[in-house]
Each structure stands twice: as structure tokens, then as C-alpha cells.
């Protein structure tokens, strides 16, 4: 049997809305992932250090503030600094589709904005990491 894949779910930014992050954490847990949930107000350094110590395969960022264009680069840079730029980074939240190409260029593997389903994100991460599907549906 394959071992579960580990994902860090964090909510960077200064706004106090963690609903999106909680929903993301829960969906990945229900899909058989091991989710390290660190919640609100995560600085790039906090995210990078958690990714390093917890040795996660995936970093999931939940964004709500609209400041996403300025939030992502320092996170990617912090991950690089600690040598964890190999982690698969995905982002979800209120991100307009027009921004997505530029965000991908920043080093975020995929963006799940309004209108996408969490199942799509889970499917994407499964394909990239080879994670098991506990329901065996795919």
C-alpha cells in the first residue's frame, strides 16, 4: 500500500478569513491526504519553515485578500531559501482567471479560482504526486 501524501495548508495574508483554508484542509483529508493545518496569518518564512520541518510534498495556499500577486513571490522565494522549491505549490481562492498565467510563471503549479471544484485540485495533486485514491474511483 502506498503511504499517504503530506500537504501543508496555510492562509497567508493579513485578512482574518480562514474558511477557505479550512475547507481545503478538510477536502484533502477526506481524500486521504495528511494535512498539516497552520491556519491564518502565515508569513512566507513560517510557510517555508513548516514545509521544511514537516517535509511535506505539497503546499496549499488559500488566498482571499486580493493581494495574491504580491503574496506569492516571497513565498516561492522563502521555499527556495530553505531548499524546498521542489514542493508542489497550489493556490486556491478569489483569484481572477486573467491573473493565472502570471501566477504560474511565479512557480505556483496550479491555481484553483472561483468556479473550480476542490475535486479538481485533489485530482491535480494526485496526478502530480501519485497519491492513492482511497475510494479507488479513478
Amino acid at each position: 500500500m502506498k503511504q499517504p501524501v503530506r500537504i501543508l495548508v496555510a492562509k497567508p495574508g493579513l485578512d482574518g478569513h480562514d474558511r477557505g483554508a479550512k475547507v481545503m484542509a478538510r477536502a484533502f483529508r477526506d481524500a486521504g491526504f495528511e494535512v498539516i493545518y497552520t491556519g491564518l496569518f502565515q508569513t512566507p518564512e513560517m510557510i517555508a519553515n513548516a514545509a521544511l520541518q514537516e517535509d511535506v510534498d505539497v503546499v496549499g495556499l488559500s488566498i482571499l485578500s486580493g493581494a495574491h500577486m504580491s503574496l506569492f513571490p516571497p513565498i516561492i522565494e522563502a521555499l527556495r531559501q530553505v531548499g524546498r522549491d521542489d514542493a508542489l505549490v497550489i493556490a486556491g481562492g478569489t483569484i481572477p482567471a486573467t491573473d493565472i498565467p502570471r501566477i504560474r510563471e511565479m512557480g505556483i503549479a496550479e491555481v484553483f479560482g472561483p468556479g473550480t471544484r476542490l475535486q479538481d485540485a485533489i485530482q491535480f495533486v494526485r496526478e502530480r504526486t501519485g497519491a492513492d485514491d482511497p475510494e479507488g474511483s479513478t
Binding site: F28, R29, F33, E34, V35, A50, D132
Partner: peptide, 17 residues
Amino acid sequence: TGGATLGDRIRMLEWHA
């Protein structure tokens, strides 16, 4: 499912650095 929410770290974040 074998999944888990690991929520202890959130109480110890201040030491990350």
C-alpha cells in the same frame, strides 16, 4: 480514508524560525 488533519503544530508556530 487514511487521511488526517494534523493540527498540533498550529499551537507552536511561534518557534518556526
